[in-house]
């Protein structure tokens, strides 16, 4: 038996990885990232407050932070703020879930099968090129101004990023790995679950993240035009009534909601990248 001991380069790698203190170092680095990210919003808030209290801007065009806050409190007391946030979030989540699920399935089919790629990819590419707003009149005619039309539009928005990333990632799975899997007797579903799916998981999560961002985009498109509640409705309604404070409120809420949901998926993305690559 040849005496092949542990390779020195490899052991040094492993000790570096498991070195104590690494997690705390990463933790403080993350803290710095969070703080650094908060600098610009705080500066903007200060500048905003300064500009309005110094009278540099017209209050009716550019409301002060305080009046935006008060507008929020006012809407909250009437029970509308919570309702609007809840209904918009619900639409995004349902539409995202539907669109992303279909995107996963179609993306897998197109990415794995050359035939389906030839048959489906050009058509889907064409549908993808249609601007989101173009669907609105049709969806309203077909599905009326109910929840279905909005959720369908959001699902369309969520579908494409997932479909595109999954199909592309599956097409680019390392052929050598797939062949190795085949050489060891794997095929069909077993091969997909053992080799292809784990290989594309990081891309799938990245695609889901894009899809969620797009869902918020399409939500506003849907609610701006045909809704009686929700943040998009708040935007269009306030626009008609000249309530800039409420417009600011709605925009800020969309920013916070979008960023928060994105951060949650971003966390998953990081975990997936660490576990599956």
């Amino acid at each position: 038996m040849s005496s092949l001991g542990a390779d020195p380069t490899a052991t040094s790698t492993s000790t570096r990885r498991s070195a104590p203190g690494r997690s705390t170092a990463a933790g403080s680095a993350r803290g710095i990232t969070l703080l650094g990210g908060a600098v610009l919003p705080l500066l903007l808030l200060l500048a905003w407050q300064g500009a309005t209290s110094l009278g540099l801007v017209n209050e009716s065009q550019f409301p002060s932070p305080e009046s935006v806050y008060l507008a929020g409190v006012d809407l909250g007391q009437r029970g509308l703020l919570g309702l609007y946030v809840a209904i918009s979030t619900q639409r995004v989540l349902i539409g995202f879930a539907i669109g992303a699920s279909i995107g996963l399935v179609i993306g897998a089919i197109v990415g794995l099968s050359r035939t389906w790629n030839v048959l489906l990819a050009p058509t889907l590419g064409g549908i993808r090129a249609v601007p989101s707003l173009a669907w609105v009149p049709l969806l309203i005619l077909w599905l009326k101004i109910g929840e279905e039309s909005k959720i369908t539009l959001i699902a369309i928005g969520a579908f494409f990023p997932v479909y595109t990333t999954v199909a592309a990632a599956l097409r680019h799975v390392d052929r050598q790995l797939v062949e190795a899997g085949r050489a060891f007797g794997l095929n069909g579903v077993k091969l997909f679950l053992t080799v292809q799916l784990p290989a594309v998981l990081p891309s799938v999560v990245a695609g889901l993240r894009l899809a969620l961002a797009q869902s918020w985009l399409f939500l506003v498109a849907a609610e701006l035009i045909a809704a009686s509640m929700g943040l998009g409705f708040l935007l269009s309604d306030s626009g008609n009534n000249g309530r800039t404070d409420r417009i600011f409120l709605a925009i800020l809420l969309l920013a916070v909601l979008g960023k928060t949901s994105d951060a949650v998926l971003g966390l998953f993305e990081k975990l997936a990248a660490r576990r599956w690559s």
């Binding site: 790995l177 062949e179 053992t194 080799v195 576990r275």
Partner: peptide, 11 residues
Amino acid sequence: FAFQEPRLLPW
């Protein structure tokens, strides 16, 4: 089969 490259599943 043992290939020229290890071809191990990275995960």
